[in-house]
Design a binder for these strands. Structure first.
Lengths: 125, 125
DNA sequence: ATACTATGTTAGGAAACCTTACATGGTTGG
DNA sequence: CCAACCATGTAAGGTTTCCTAACATAGTAT
């Protein structure tokens, strides 16, 4: 059974995700409104998050703390998903994207080496 | 951050554990009454389970389906924790214990090889 | 035949979560 | 400088999920 499935399986409730990410419920719902995450829903309409969702939230948090705004973050995510999208007003230059990706890679490397880092989900599961 | 911590971190709510284990809430609470698991509690008194708890529950389920009763399962778990416990009425013979352990080992091996097996938690996370 | 074991079910209450709406400090463009 | 907007806080009212406690029951063991 693939790692993909494990990471997309909705296992976590709102309160746990709040603890894991140190975000408020309001913030998490707001990011969902902007389609940056799409948590699963139970029959009773409760959100259930996957580990991937948590990762995404930590990424969003990081970008926001770096001063990026939602609009830019949305474009960033859109482009990461489909780097050759043809929408006209995708005004996030390729060089900007590459810049960000490069930083992510460097961060990932650092995570391999040092032990604990903010945003390192492996603390939790 | 150690695997140990990841696996003991209370992340999962009752409903999710019910799905993962295919046990009823009643059953899960009953096994807790017998101290086979000790889920964490939130401030509001809700149970929060770790991945280890889920493993334990699947193990219990397996033993029960094999016809073992709670009393025996309790002794089995006690002895697995402390194989040299000195309580008098620990009437689970060493050979019985070794027998069970051997089967577990064989099962674990099979899990390495074949893909999906009941009791294989890796389906989920 | 009786007692026990493991589980189901029900009731009443509390915690956690939901959506919607309004409030607000910080930033931004005119 | 001010109006608009952005990201977030907060409050209200309602629903879902979970809690404990108690009683019911089919199957098993004594």
């Amino acid at each position: 059974m693939s790692r993909e499935i494990r990471r997309t399986m909705p296992l976590l409730s709102m309160s746990i995700v709040m603890q894991l990410t140190e975000l408020s419920a309001r913030q998490i719902r707001y990011y969902e409104e902007h389609h940056l995450i799409e948590p699963h829903r139970t029959e009773g309409n409760r959100r259930m998050f996957s580990l991937n969702d948590v990762d995404t939230l930590l990424e969003i948090k990081d970008y926001l703390e770096q001063g990026m705004n939602m609009a830019k973050i949305k474009k960033l995510f859109a482009k990461k998903k489909d780097p050759v999208a043809t929408t006209e007003d995708q005004n996030l230059s390729d060089s900007e994207l590459r810049q960000i990706m490069r930083e992510e890679m460097r961060q990932a490397q650092r995570m391999q080496k040092s032990s604990i880092r903010r945003g390192d989900l492996s603390r939790f599961y």
